[in-house]
Computed example of a mutant assay.
Amino acid sequence: MTTEPIATGGTRLDLAFDITDLTVRFGKGAAAVTPLQKLSLEVPDGQFLCILGPSGQGKSTLLRCMAGLQEATSGSMRAAGREVTGPTANLGMVFQQDAIPQWLRVRDNISFGPRMRKVPAHEWKPRVEHFISAVGLSGRENAWPKELSGGMRKRVAIGAVFANDPDILLMDEPFGSLDYFTRATLHATLLKLWAETRKTIVFVTHDVDEALLLADRIVVVTDGKIGADIELPFARPRDDGLRMDPEADTIRRGLLEVLRAPARMQS
């Protein structure tokens, strides 16, 4: 029999996230809105988790809580065994909209995190150069963001978050505004970096096929709760052939059924 490592207080040490009865409520009385209600979720270290959900049903609120950007009304949220009370360098975030500083060139953007944390230059410089190359920006190190396409700016954001070396990466529909071919290229880049680093990744998306391609596990958040939780059986690497796989189609249909279920009024 195997046992999981336990910290003082009963926290599992092999969990990137341990979330129990998480509730978020905005407003009071009849006007109150509850995007999350008593949601519980465990995310193992190193897992690539995709969170799916209809608009307004709690998936982005959950991610903001995980990032320490949104305070919970009740319940507990632990990252790597520690209570989440605000943003930390251990939690890297990639947003849907461009969030890289426009006044910094590519290399300065990607090195921004470790420089702000006062990591010695001899440590961060090789790492930054590695991730500039890994995200396909070699030769564009001195470019300004305004000189880059949307896909290239997203590469900068991904390179920056990996270069800062957090244990956990949180990604809020990062490729939602990109065209199909750019998204496909960035999917491959992200999966390559994940395979190299084995960071925990929590990736919010509204695209079922994107989740099937990327994830080890898919969780559907609907009505502020977990509506489905599926471990994917598919080997890696995966490609567009997954669209024709009968088992993938069965899972896709099941996920779409959960996503299309009528939502109650949150109050």
Results as ranks from 00 to 15, higher is better:
206 H>G: 09
23 T>Q: 04
78 R>W: 02
10 G>T: 11
186 L>Q: 09
22 L>K: 04
106 V>C: 05
4 E>D: 14
228 A>L: 13
184 A>N: 06
5 P>D: 03
116 M>S: 10
125 K>S: 06
182 T>P: 05
124 W>Q: 08
135 V>L: 04
157 A>S: 15
127 R>P: 12
99 A>N: 11
150 G>N: 05
77 M>E: 02
248 A>G: 05
211 A>S: 13
15 L>A: 14
75 G>Y: 11
43 V>C: 08
62 L>W: 12
39 L>R: 08
65 C>L: 01
128 V>R: 12
251 I>W: 07
27 G>F: 08
254 G>Y: 01
210 E>N: 03
264 R>K: 14
68 G>A: 06
244 M>W: 02
21 D>W: 03
256 L>M: 15
229 D>T: 08
128 V>E: 07
158 I>E: 05
40 S>W: 05
50 C>Q: 10
127 R>T: 14
83 E>D: 15
260 R>L: 11
108 D>V: 07
61 T>H: 05
54 P>I: 03
162 F>H: 07
261 A>T: 13
28 K>I: 00
35 P>V: 00
179 D>I: 00
138 S>E: 15
62 L>P: 12
176 G>T: 04
255 L>Y: 12
250 T>R: 15
264 R>C: 05
233 P>W: 00
62 L>Q: 11
82 R>A: 15
120 P>I: 02
159 G>Q: 10
261 A>G: 02
113 G>E: 02
167 D>I: 00
2 T>M: 06
56 G>F: 01
78 R>P: 09
30 A>S: 12
217 R>T: 11
251 I>Y: 07
153 R>E: 03
98 D>V: 10
171 M>R: 03
85 T>E: 08
266 Q>H: 10
259 L>F: 08
109 N>Y: 13
230 I>D: 00
43 V>T: 10
107 R>D: 13
131 F>G: 02
257 E>Q: 14
199 K>F: 12
116 M>C: 12
173 E>Y: 07
51 I>D: 05
80 A>Y: 14
169 L>F: 06
214 L>D: 07
202 V>K: 10
79 A>L: 08
35 P>S: 00
241 G>A: 06
257 E>F: 01
209 D>R: 04
78 R>M: 11
136 G>Q: 10
132 I>Y: 06
196 E>A: 15
112 F>H: 09
219 V>R: 08
139 G>Y: 09
59 K>E: 10
44 P>K: 09
155 R>C: 03
227 G>T: 12
224 G>T: 06
221 V>Q: 03
267 S>C: 01
78 R>E: 04
119 V>W: 04
222 T>Q: 13
242 L>S: 09
129 E>A: 14
45 D>M: 09
189 T>M: 00
52 L>M: 12
93 M>C: 01
226 I>E: 09
64 R>K: 15
57 Q>L: 00
200 T>F: 07
151 G>I: 06
239 D>M: 05
42 E>Y: 03
112 F>Y: 14
83 E>I: 11
144 W>H: 14
166 P>N: 04
113 G>W: 05
155 R>E: 08
76 S>N: 10
111 S>I: 01
237 P>Y: 06
166 P>M: 01
251 I>N: 08
86 G>Y: 09
78 R>N: 14
84 V>D: 11
168 I>G: 09
221 V>Y: 02
173 E>A: 01
109 N>S: 12
240 D>F: 12
244 M>V: 00
264 R>W: 04
247 E>Y: 10
60 S>Q: 07
156 V>D: 06
80 A>F: 15
51 I>P: 09
122 H>L: 04
190 L>V: 11
74 S>I: 00
88 T>G: 10
